[in-house]
């Protein structure tokens, strides 16, 4: 059964069409990679799914519920969806532990001790147990991004949205974040990830969607979309990626 189903999504910014009749279906435990040039609508799609941006048309269903209905409580929906951003967006005035426990304590009303125990366990699992009391500006980019992923996981989300989570990282730090996403897949987490890491998309994704001008131009198993693309625009995009040495 589909966990997420987007139908005919449309989004405009200042007259420009960013999403254009876009359809996307994600099954439970499935990992879908969104690829495409900057401005093709990947980030906007993720923001619309998480209701951070309003749609101009179309519907988004999560677990069969139409969450794009304006009568739906957006805060309740977002609790079920974890989101990780390109620039980490950790809260600089809170320690690592406080960043992670903020939502469990304030949104889910868990006791402080319980939330902290859960956060420490998650941190230990990703090898950041000793940084629990550090502030974000004391961490490397890779560590910050891993904390951001843990922060999203602390809500026990049904679905994770990852928006180019390695694009701001130094090359030698990309690996540690990708390893964490690999582990999430092994745990059966449903994920939609916008990425420029074609090699990683090929390895981790069950399905790759190529976006261009706000539409899914081509989608399918990674070997097919990245190996034998049928659409000229997909081929053109991949050729440019190869020329840039990114594949």
């Amino acid at each position: 059964m589909a966990l997420l189903r987007c139908r005919g999504l449309r989004k405009e910014y200042a007259g420009a069409v960013v999403l254009d009749r876009l359809d996307l279906t994600v099954a439970e435990h499935q990992v879908v990679a969104l690829i495409g040039a900057s401005g093709s609508g990947k980030s906007t799609l993720l923001r619309c799914v998480n209701l951070l941006d309003d749609l101009d048309d179309g519907t988004v269903e999560l677990d069969g519920e139409d969450i794009s209905d304006p009568r739906v409580d957006a805060d309740r929906v977002r609790r079920r969806i974890g989101m990780v951003f390109q620039a980490y967006n950790l809260f600089p005035h809170l320690s690592v532990l406080e960043n992670i426990t903020l939502a469990p304590r304030r949104v889910h009303r868990r006791a402080r001790a319980e939330a902290e125990a859960q956060a420490r366990e998650l941190l230990d699992r990703v090898g950041l147990g000793d940084r629990a009391d550090a502030y974000p500006d004391r961490l490397s980019g890779g560590q910050q991004q891993r904390v951001a992923i843990v922060r999203a996981l602390a809500n026990s989300p049904r679905l994770m949205l990852l928006d180019e989570v390695t694009s701001a990282l130094d090359p030698e730090l990309v690996g540690e974040v990708l390893a964490m996403i690999r582990d999430l897949k092994a745990d059966g987490m449903t994920m939609v990830l916008a990425t420029h890491e074609m090699g990683f998309a090929r390895e981790v994704a069950d399905e790759v969607c190529f976006l261009d001008a706000g539409r899914v131009v081509e989608s399918g198993p990674p070997e097919q979309v990245l190996g034998e693309p049928t659409q000229p625009r997909t081929r053109q995009f991949l050729r440019r990626i190869i020329e840039a040495g990114r594949l």
Binding site: R47, N50, L52, A74, D75, R76, R78, R79, I81, G82, M83, F85, A87, N89, L90, F91, L102, A103, R106, V107, R151, A152, N155
Partner: peptide, 16 residues
């Protein structure tokens, strides 16, 4: 604004 987006994405209300 990215700080607000991060907070709202965690399910925090506007007031929180």
């Amino acid at each position: 604004p990215s700080q607000l987006a991060a907070a709202r994405s965690l399910g925090l209300t506007y007031r929180q």
